[in-house]
Design a protein around this nucleic acid. Structure first.
Length: 851
RNA sequence: GGGCAGAUGGCGGAAUUGGCAGACGCGCUAGGCUUAGGACCUAGUUCCUGAUGAAGGAGUGCGGGUUCGAGUCCCGCUCUGCCUACCA
């Protein structure tokens, strides 16, 4: 544990030399707690964090994912918000008008669970947590514009969820449908597909079961294509996040083809991405949940088939989304006609065909699909090759193949389509099916519409009224918000608490004024977070969810920072909402977050910090011992923002020590800040070196923050400048020009450090005689001429091995470098008098000799 | 099964465009200061050979390749992490 002072004192009398140590003994202690409190108050008094629409400056919207008010902030928050704050503070100093807001994702199940467990009202629990976490964030000195704070559990926020919902309802983007839903028996609620993780509830891990219910859905599938094509504008997103979204949307191009079911007038429609293989379709498989199943089961074997189907359906419902199950199928004895060949193929029912993807029926082409191959082998179904590798197109393929061939190739055994390449055939055969009227080329998506109904209390009431006469009626805008009633009993029993609250349910129809019932489901909380970044632009707007001109000014978000765990859910929903709001005419942007920085996990001892692992480090405790600036600095220094961050207390101490060294170094040299301007005369070696390093450091830190977002290397370069300055300090103090260089170096260290360690930096800024807040002063500029190295180190290699090096003037022509290199004694010795076979020279870098 | 990312000293990591591998920090070693110190200061710290030094050799998960030159590009593996998973 560090001590917040530098020495034990006791030798103040030893002042004869000017060594750093001796000065240190006189230096005031680094009292981070007092400094933090002082500057946090100063920033608040000056309203320094407030964003103003200022047309004279470029805008910058820096956003971090808003927190769920669970009670206390954790290291993941600290990391997220520290990264964002460095960017926001640096941009502000660099001249941008910065919007850096914060709010609370305050609706959701934990509040309700806490209510059930402890008898506290969800609202009380949530608002208490918000109050505590707000204090914690303020204590971290994050430069949030608190005047724009939003809280989604307050009616002045969630009324706009309702407003947006009603507009979607009017346009058919919100609709009601009965469907099988994912049900968590622990949380007693429906889960969206995205909230089912590995077959369990994303929150409590309880195995998810299926239940049929009437639900509200948002038509995200209407935007499936655009959500995919929009990726083109997301060049600054991590590739793996785009890939995840792409997989989630799951666009497949192929064809629908109808097979006539013998003995009935019905068709079985299949979807395939490989219509080129259709001559090899030797069976059909339908899902056990398919509507045609009763027709297939009917007949002599009805009893056993029916039993099999019932068992399989039950099994599929229970085990949905859980790993690989044994493939199981049953031959119905029925046949269907392949419209391309006229051939009759057996129809099977199986457990591996999903009802909710494609048509719920597939054609089995065992020769060219691994699963079909396996299935055909098990049940002794014929396997027929219809695609040959391109280089074997002329051969005969009459025998059953020994293994599956899944690649594209050239068609064989395919009647008139023989000899076509797969891609050509897909097109031709699709057209053929369209002409004959038994199929069509088509595109389908894996993406499902977004089920938003939740049978819970602590969410946005869905603003809909059911009237026996008028049907489903949206609540009129004038009656918004539909407020959550406060006096509710939370027992944890099945069903919504609102449903049991007669005073809430009972209402009158807005159309006919007859008695009617309110919808008692509430919205998925992902609705709240799908548009909160719009609200920040005009958080007190009362006529609309946000003022369109304000949104036009601030959006899109220039940099969005947050955990990759939201790569699918939140980020896809937000993109969807943005497009919907655009189509409402409220905004003209299509993508809310052109630049997304996916922050890495915070781990300790090899695994993510979590309560269950018992490896939590409480930020409050660290703050008390080392101060905010040390914590911020360390969490940014230890690894780049997008990589995993492993907590190690020793590293934190290193950062603390660095801050103390900066503190001491500046305070011991306060006199150079009051000295008159440098006397004329060339700078000494030390001064020249320090000046150059200062300008190089400004350049590096500016680029590392603003271009590369490598905050760790920005910090290490400030450390380097500090190290050099400390080393050269005595030499610098000896001359006027040296003192000038020292002053410049120290001032730069303070300014460059200010986004990372803002409190310490402000204090030193003030103590070095500056007026006004450092955070509102200009970001330092560097002089490219001064940052330039006046000599370049040129490496000389022989056969790829470094044999010598020499200093050369910058940009010396290659021929001169070569001559200089060949003249070096070491090189001559190594060459042994023989002329080199080849020499390659690169300006400012190296001479490579092949002997 | 598929996708993505990664693998560099004792540890976290750096190397931005194919050009001095190991910046910066931690840890460790020695010395100084000190009643003492887990504080602070100075020096050292990739590995191997060399008593030390001078010097030499090896070296970025493994195997190949391209190149004057590869941590970086290409091909093939291994392992780790994350995501996804009967997607027709």
């Amino acid at each position: 544990m560090p001590r917040a002072f530098l020495t034990s004192g006791g030798n103040e009398s030893k002042m004869k030399s000017h060594s750093l140590e001796d000065f240190r003994t006189m230096t005031e202690i680094y009292d981070f707690a007092a400094i933090e409190a002082k500057w946090q108050k100063a920033w608040e008094d000056e309203r320094a964090f407030e964003a103003r629409e200022d047309p004279s400056r470029p805008k910058y919207y820096c956003l971090e994912m808003y927190p769920y008010p669970s009670g206390r902030i954790h290291m993941g928050h600290v990391r997220n918000y520290s990264i964002g704050d460095v960017i926001a503070r640096q941009k502000r100093m660099a001249g941008a008008s910065v919007l850096h807001p914060i709010g609370w994702d305050a609706l959701g199940m934990p509040a309700e669970n806490a209510a059930i467990k402890h008898g506290t009202h969800p609202q009380t629990w949530t608002l208490d947590n918000v109050a505590h976490m707000r204090t914690q964030l303020k204590r971290m000195g994050i430069s949030y514009d608190w005047s724009r704070e939003v809280n989604t559990c307050l009616p002045d926020y969630y009324r706009w969820n309702q407003w947006i919902f009603l507009r979607m309802l009017e346009r058919g983007l919100a609709f009601r449908k009965e469907s099988w839903v994912n049900w968590c028996s622990q949380c007693q609620t429906v889960l969206a597909n995205e909230q089912v993780v590995g077959g369990g509830c994303w929150r409590c891990d309880t195995p998810v079961t299926q239940k049929k219910m009437e639900q509200w859905f948002l038509k995200i599938t209407a935007y499936a294509d655009e959500l995919l094509s929009g990726h083109a504008a997301l060049g600054k997103w991590p590739e793996h996040v785009l890939q995840m979204q792409k997989n989630w949307i799951g666009r497949s191009t192929g064809a629908h083809v109808r097979f006539g079911l013998d003995g009935t007038s019905k068709d079985i429609e299949v979807f395939t991405t490989r219509i080129d293989t259709i001559y090899g379709a030797t069976f059909l498989v339908v899902s056990a949940e398919h509507p045609v199943v009763p027709d297939l089961v009917a007949g002599p074997k009805e009893k056993e088939l029916g039993a099999w189907v019932a068992r399989t359906v039950a099994e599929m419902r229970k085990r949905r989304d859980i790993g690989e199950t044994e493939k199981d199928g049953v031959d119905t004895g029925k046949t269907a006609v392949n419209p391309f060949t006229g051939e009759r193929v057996p129809v099977w029912i199986a457990n591996y065909v999903l009802m909710d993807f494609g048509t719920g029926a597939i054609m089995g082409v065992p020769a060219h699909d691994g699963r079909d191959f396996e299935f055909a082998r098990t049940y002794r179904i014929p396997i027929r090759t219809v695609i040959a590798p391109a280089d074997r197109a002329g051969e005969r393929f009459d025998a059953e193949p020994a293994e599956v061939f899944e690649q594209a190739g050239v068609l064989v055994n395919s009647g008139p389509f023989d000899g076509l390449a797969s891609d050509k055939a897909m097109d031709e055969m699709g057209k053929f099916a369209e002409e004959k009227g038994f199929g069509r080329r088509s595109t389908i998506f894996r993406l499902r519409d977004w089920g938003i109904s939740r049978q819970r209390y602590w969410g946005t009431p869905i603003p809909v009224i059911y009237c026996d006469g008028c049907g489903i009626v949206g609540v009129p805008d004038a009656d918004l918000p539909v407020e959550l009633p406060f006096d509710v009993k939370l027992t944890g029993e099945e069903g919504s608490p609102l449903e049991r609250l007669e005073s809430f349910v009972h209402t009158t129809c807005p159309k006919c004024h007859g008695p009617a019932r309110r919808e008692t489901d509430t919205m998925d909380t992902f609705v709240d977070s799908s548009w909160y970044f719009f609200r920040y632009c005009s958080p007190r707007e009362t006529a609309l969810p946000f003022r369109p001109e304000a949104a036009k000014h601030w959006l899109p978000v220039d940099l969005y920072i947050g955990g990759v765990e939201h790569a699918i859910l939140h980020l896809i929903y937000s993109r969807f909402f943005t497009k919907v709001l655009r189509d409402f005419g409220l905004t003209d942007i299509s993508e809310p977050f052109p630049h997304y920085l996916a922050q890495g996990m915070v781990t300790k001892d090899g695994s993510a910090m979590s309560k269950s692992k018992g490896n939590i480090v409480d930020p409050d405790e660290i703050l008390a011992r080392y101060g905010v600036d040390a914590l911020r600095l360390f969490i940014l220094f230890a690894s780049p923002p997008d990589k995993e961050f492993a907590w190690a207390e020793e590293g934190l101490e290193g950062c603390y020590r660095f801050l103390v060294r900066v503190w001491a170094l500046v305070l011991e040299d306060l006199d150079v800040f009051s000295a008159p301007a440098a006397a004329p005369g060339g700078p000494g070696d030390a001064a020249a070196q320090v000046i150059k390093k200062t300008h190089q450091t400004i350049r590096k830190v500016t680029e590392d923050i603003g271009i590369r977002f490598h905050l760790n290397t920005a910090i290490s370069s400030i450390m380097e400048l500090c190290n050099l300055t400390r080393k050269e300090r005595d030499a610098l103090r000896a001359t006027d020009s040296g003192r000038q260089a020292l002053r410049q170096a120290l001032e730069s260290i303070i300014r460059l450090l200010s986004p990372f360690a803002p409190h310490l930096a402000e204090e030193l800024w003030e103590r070095t005689g500056h007026q006004g807040l450092l955070m509102l002063s200009a970001w330092p500029a560097y002089d490219p001429a001064l940052a330039r190295d006046e000599m370049a180190t040129v490496v000389v290699q022989i056969n790829g091995k470094v044999r010598d090096r020499f200093e050369a003037l910058p940009d010396l022509p290659e021929a001169e470098l070569e001559a200089a290199a060949l003249a070096l004694p070491k090189i001559q010795a190594a060459l042994g008098g023989k002329p080199p076979r080849k020499v390659i020279s690169v300006r400012n870098k190296l001479v490579s000799i092949v002997s």
